[in-house]
Design a protein around this nucleic acid. Sequence first.
DNA 1: AAATAGTTTAAACAAATGTTTTAACCGTGT
DNA 2: ACACGGTTAAAACATTTGTTTAAACTATTT
Lengths: 231, 231
Amino acid sequence: MSDDAKTTQARLLDAAENLFASKGFDQVSIRELAAAADVNVAAVNYHFQSKENLYRQVITRRYAGQRDRTVAALEDLLKGSGGTPDLAEVIGIMVRQYLEGTLAAPEGPGFLMAVSREMHGQQPHVSEALFREMIAPVFQAFSAAILQARPHLTSGQLSWTIASIVGQVHHFIMRWIKKESLRQDTESLAIMMNVFPPLGEPLPEYIRLVTDHVTAFSTAAVDGMFPEVAS
Amino acid sequence: MSDDAKTTQARLLDAAENLFASKGFDQVSIRELAAAADVNVAAVNYHFQSKENLYRQVITRRYAGQRDRTVAALEDLLKGSGGTPDLAEVIGIMVRQYLEGTLAAPEGPGFLMAVSREMHGQQPHVSEALFREMIAPVFQAFSAAILQARPHLTSGQLSWTIASIVGQVHHFIMRWIKKESLRQDTESLAIMMNVFPPLGEPLPEYIRLVTDHVTAFSTAAVDGMFPEVAS
DNA sequence: AAATAGTTTAAACAAATGTTTTAACCGTGT
DNA sequence: ACACGGTTAAAACATTTGTTTAAACTATTT
């Protein structure tokens, strides 16, 4: 479906998604949005009441799918393994889903980069609703799956572990985004890529490498920190 | 030294540090800065040429100390241990320095929060210079220290490991900052603190807990992933 | 005391922002 | 053909932004 066949609303949502993703909420003006979507400036307020509300809709529209896919993948794994999944597989699913959903969604480039910014950012544009409806369910499914793989973990150990995993993933996402946004600035780019080796790879390979690393790193950490007492 | 005894420049720098830290570059207007520092709006441009340059100076002024302290602490450890430091101590120093420098510097609240935002952010306000002068030296000292503790690590394994550590630290910093910025929004705050248990602690205790966790987690991960061949 | 260099002040400036208004437009149903 | 709801268009609106101007002030120097 070509752009001019889509409705004004849809074109605005798509343009907003890409622009917000690559520049952040404050850095995108309504006029810029309108130009990218090839609509009138007033369209944003007509269809979405406000710029902030458009932002909210962009995020929730995409994140719902991400959430459902991740939860479903975790549940599938639980069923397939008869209740005792491999810890590395659990973490691997979570990490890969997050990376793919954020950096390489089929719906288009940019996708969910905004969410990471939102989670790390200060502006509470959507934070509470996003957290309750989107993050919390994934968090819960992830917790449950880890607990199936390592039933001896306490709830405290569990949340520390999850925080360490999420932190790593965010960092690798931000690193890729930063690299993308530096495309023009060849000097800074060269410095970054020199210090952070995996950045030179194309995106699918980057996702694979990061997934493998974070999975192996975190699995080793969990089993080193919280060894299961031999039965 | 009371505020009105300080020079206009110093008062602006201090006010800017706190405001930029808690709200981010774009969210702070020059008029807000001037009001907080109790100076005229023109003072920013008179003394610092531009808002962006003021921002640069705020960051470099503080980060230089942070950098020197961290590098010195790592070098001390190397000397004290006769060239074979404990890995956990190396990581612990790095993590603690980063957390303290960012969240709890004696110079005042807020301190270096802006740097984390800068590193994760899109705006290239100071990125390249900051990276080259401030981040790179710390990165290098940290790398060298880890390599002394675990000489068998390849350079690739080293940079993956550092990325995982830095990612975790950033995440725990952001989490604290986010909590601070949600002080008014009691509902969101309750949700966050419920899901992320260590957040309820006062700052020094939070720093201690995070340092211990990240250190233990990462040490276990390194030794689990890259076991030294028994001699 | 006059002059000077540095600093502070209030006011103005130009540009950009999110939003609203009002009129034109379009297809659909009568 | 006409009227009507929904949509788009251009223009205007009220604020806010970073920055500059030009005059007032202040202390030090001559």
